[in-house]
């Protein structure tokens, strides 16, 4: 499985169908890297000609902008837009809802207009187009609870694509009390993940994990690397790390198909 950069594509005078935007978490965090590998696997199985930016990628600037540090946001964003426009990028897929939101909604006014999809949307389409099939039965008897991330769900209104995949995985999947537009934050957004929480009665991630554990899941499915980091901590805090696994939806597909 080789992953090519846009630079390599360009030097062969080729254009990829789509650019996979990996993001900081997917590039550097060892837990989130496993999501990157899973998604690369899916792209390969679906025979999609994709490229990454590799070392030419930098943070979209989401946490800088949401912390209030607009200078730093503009520096990241304008640099990325320069790079993307230089390669004449048309379509981008990313496994991070924060990267997804910033590139889709905040880059256009800065001069970066691309078609942007989240990996759950792309995967849902691949299933519908039968470019990948999912082996049933891998999760028989396992209950999967689904967590809506704020930036895919409430902010961008994408509730169904990840659910379509979960149904295709053919498991007993459970909704938690606060779902879809009422989904409860994991506590990471708005650059919170990079600082201590303010004083309160409990962590936001603990509140969310308690709600997820209420449905007695074997697996928590998510669509955002930062949600997964926060919920991993939450599940550990509850002493449930042996009983409840937290996976990105792409990882569940790889597991189901034993890829």
């Amino acid at each position: 499985m080789k992953v090519y950069t846009l630079e390599e594509f360009a030097s062969n005078n080729e254009t990829p169908e789509i650019v996979f935007w990996v993001g900081c978490a997917g590039s550097f965090d060892s837990r989130a890297q496993r999501i990157t590998y899973a998604f690369v696997k899916i792209l390969n199985e679906a025979k999609i000609k994709f490229a990454v930016l590799g070392n030419e990628e930098s943070c979209t600037g989401d946490p800088a902008r949401r912390s209030g540090n607009e200078f730093l946001f503009q520096m990241q964003a304008l640099q990325n837009i320069e790079t993307l426009n230089m390669y004449k990028v048309k379509k981008i897929v990313t496994a991070c809802p924060h990267c997804f939101n910033t590139i889709k909604n905040e880059y256009p006014v800065l001069g970066g207009e691309y078609e942007v999809v989240h990996h759950t949307q792309l995967i849902a389409d691949l299933i519908k187009e039968k470019k990948i099939t999912i082996e049933g039965g891998a999760f028989e008897g396992k209950k999967i609870a689904y967590h809506d991330s704020c930036y895919l769900g409430r902010v961008n209104g994408i509730y169904e694509a990840p659910r379509e995949i979960l149904r295709a995985i053919d498991s007993e999947y459970a909704e938690v009390k606060r779902n879809r537009s009422k989904g409860f934050c994991c506590g990471a957004g708005g650059a919170q993940v990079f600082k201590e929480e303010e004083e309160g009665s409990k962590g936001v991630n603990i509140e969310r994990v308690e709600e997820l554990l209420d449905v007695k899941p074997d697996i928590i499915a998510a669509n955002c690397p930062f949600c997964i980091l926060m919920m991993n901590d939450g599940v550990k805090n509850k002493g449930k790390e042996e009983d409840v696994m937290i996976y990105d939806i792409s990882e569940l597909i790889v597991q189901a198909n034993k890829w």
């Binding site: 990996v22 550097f28 930098s58 946490p63 990079f194």
Partner: peptide, 24 residues
């Protein structure tokens, strides 16, 4: 937030990392 800002400014990533971005 300062360490995140510094990491962004110097390496374009939210964490200060010894690795290159594409090393994954």
């Amino acid at each position: 937030w300062l360490s995140m800002f510094n990491a962004l400014e110097s390496g374009g990533s939210v964490w200060q990392m010894p690795d290159q971005r594409f090393d994954w």
